[in-house]
């Protein structure tokens, strides 16, 4: 039987010594968060804002402890200033994992609206990013994006598409 996406991600994080995992929770990320908390390899905790988590991972990275921030799309939308002026400007490999909400059956108009800002923001920051849509590509993309970020001293984002995670659409029918 093939591994679930979150099992693959967990293995990639461990293989690349990514230990420091501050996050703002998301329902789709729940199995990954649970597995990270269950494994003493990781130092994982919630933060009040995603900006705070970016600062923590930047500090950790400079001091020799690699990390990744977990968040959802709306959380990423709070980050343009700190990404531009901290990991981008200082060339620190801060890694982001973004659970993609707002597309492919989103029921919340606010999430759908903020989703439209994600790719333009990543592109405007010239920040390397890859969207993971397929289980058979998940390990390769996650591993290569992380390794490139570490080797080139650049921040990078991994976007987990609903095509990968099976994030549920609203059970409510349109117009009902």
């Amino acid at each position: 039987m093939s591994q679930a996406w979150h099992e693959i991600v967990l293995e990639v994080l461990k293989a690349n010594e990514i230990r420091l995992i501050p996050y703002v929770p998301d329902n789709v990320l729940k199995p990954l968060i649970a597995a990270i908390h269950a494994d003493p390899f990781f130092t994982a905790f919630t933060t009040a804002r995603e900006e705070e988590a970016v600062g923590i991972v930047a500090g950790g990275a400079m001091a020799g402890m690699r990390g990744m921030v977990l968040m959802q799309t709306s959380g990423f939308a709070t980050l343009a200033n700190v990404l531009a002026s901290l990991p981008c400007a200082f060339q620190i490999p801060v890694l982001l994992m973004i659970s993609e909400r707002g597309t492919l059956g989103e029921f919340n108009l606010g999430q759908a609206a903020v989703w439209r800002t994600m790719r333009p923001t990543l592109e405007a920051l010239a920040m390397p990013h890859q969207v993971i849509t397929r289980l058979d590509e998940c390990g390769f993309i996650a591993d290569r994006v992380i390794r490139q970020a570490l080797m080139t001293q650049q921040p990078a984002a991994l976007v987990l598409s609903p095509l990968l995670t099976g994030a549920k659409a609203s059970p409510v029918k349109a117009g009902s």
Partner: peptide, 20 residues
């Protein structure tokens, strides 16, 4: 020395403290 990212001195310091 921070340049921008206003408000992140404590989080950056926390990351350093956890790492070392």
């Amino acid at each position: 020395y921070m340049l921008g990212s206003m408000g992140l001195a404590v989080p950056i310091a926390l990351g350093v403290a956890l790492a070392q």
